[in-house]
Simulated assay, not measured.
Amino acid sequence: TTSCVTAAAGKLKEWSLILYGTAEHPYHTFSAHQSRSRMLELSAPELEPPKAALSPSQVEVPEDEEDYTGVCHPECGDKGCDGPNADQCLNCVHFSLGSVKTSRKCVSVCPLGYFGDTAARRCRRCHKGCETCSSRAATQCLSCRRGFYHHQEMNTCVTLCPAGFYADESQKNCLKCHPSCKKCVDEPEKCTVCKEGFSLARGSCIPDCEPGTYFDSELIRCGECHHTCGTCVGPGREECIHCAKNFHFHDWKCVPACGEGFYPEEMPGLPHKVCRRCDENCLSCAGSSRNCSRCKTGFTQLGTSCITNHTCSNADETFCEMVKSNRLCERKLFIQFCCRTCLLAG
């Protein structure tokens, strides 16, 4: 009754709408869960007695949007489109580029910095530094962006080429150095640092050959030195650097004894003696160029010196005695003037 309705607020727990003239049976009872979710809290004045069922003409049915019936973009797939542009496709023939935030569009080829994921038909971004790639991995770069070098063995993009590689500025690639080089520049064999077991020589790394051998650049191996050489730069007798034991260095050769007019002299830092020339009047000398042991033809030996053949006489006795007492007889000039006094001096 009306008094019951006005006494307290009520809740509508279940309702249904019957439309006449439908093709299928319209009546469907909601489940308990659906009924609870559809509860409507109504105040008492809003409750009204059930009205007669509405006629079909009284029911408002929203109109559907009209479907696009024009020509789709060539990159649109078999699902069609909502308009004529590449960003209005419902699916793509080749690849979809972009995201929900930036909007997507269909493309035939993915742009630089992306690769085509054929399974998902999506353009996916390459790793940082890659201009073209075959996957997202850092080791799948095919070419690099400006400021990067392509490491062809690792398929990565780097700002500096690692040890054992040099930067090819024309192709922007990291190319491998010669196997003997630890570091190189501009060219494979232009080494700056050598690997262990090699030494740097004029920009090349050559093997550290054993004593008595040299590096043969044609055969790329160590060859034997001449038997007179301790170390050498080639197989010839005149290519010695140091002499073998008991040999002396003379005119770029190592000899068992110095020739006439020469004497062996030790040199600091060298393992062998070097043949030095005797005084110009000496035929042979020992220990010093002035310490003559034999004189050339036309000269006479006076002590350890050789003087010209003439009558051995003194200039002035007093003067020559002074030369003798001051030990000046060794000097060639005084020997010439004071031959007899100096000769007597022995």
Rank of each mutant, 00 (worst) to 15 (best):
L344S: 12
H94K: 06
N85V: 03
C174S: 03
R327H: 11
E14V: 13
G298A: 07
E224Q: 11
S57D: 12
G83F: 06
T311H: 06
E317T: 10
E196T: 15
C278Q: 02
G303S: 11
H310I: 05
G77Y: 05
R104G: 13
L142S: 15
A345R: 01
G147L: 04
G223P: 03
T102G: 05
R104W: 03
G21E: 02
L283Q: 15
Q34E: 15
V93W: 07
G298H: 08
F115R: 03
R121K: 15
E330C: 04
T1W: 10
R237F: 08
S108K: 09
G164V: 02
E24I: 12
N85L: 05
C191E: 02
E60A: 04
K51P: 01
C258L: 06
C106A: 03
G303Q: 11
V193W: 09
T300W: 06
H151S: 06
G234Y: 06
C209D: 10
D316I: 00
C181E: 01
S325Y: 07
C106W: 00
R202K: 14
A315G: 14
Y214R: 00
R38I: 09
C282F: 08
T2N: 09
A163F: 03
C110K: 01
D67A: 10
P56N: 02
T69Q: 14
I206L: 15
S31P: 00
C209A: 08
P111D: 12
G269T: 10
G147W: 05
L47T: 09
A7Q: 13
R290F: 13
D251G: 15
S96C: 12
M267A: 12
L142W: 05
I220W: 05
E41V: 03
K11E: 15
G77H: 04
C282P: 14
E196C: 06
K245T: 13
C106L: 01
C141Q: 06
A86G: 04
Y68V: 14
C240L: 07
E187G: 01
K332L: 09
T2Y: 07
G236C: 05
C161E: 00
R277G: 00
E131K: 06
T159N: 11
T102L: 11
L328R: 13
E330H: 09
P271Y: 04
C130F: 01
M322S: 10
E266W: 05
F334V: 02
L19M: 07
L333F: 03
F299N: 03
T159M: 13
R104L: 07
Y149A: 00
Y20V: 09
L90I: 04
H150P: 00
E169I: 08
C133G: 01
T156F: 00
I206V: 15
E330N: 11
N246I: 03
C184W: 02
I241S: 07
F30P: 13
C76W: 01
E196M: 11
C222F: 03
T118I: 11
C133I: 06
L328T: 02
F198R: 02
E280R: 15
H272P: 03
A163G: 05
E14N: 14
S143V: 01
S108L: 04
E63W: 06
H151M: 09
Y114M: 09
R276G: 10
P256S: 15
F95T: 03
C174H: 07
G298W: 04
Q140A: 13
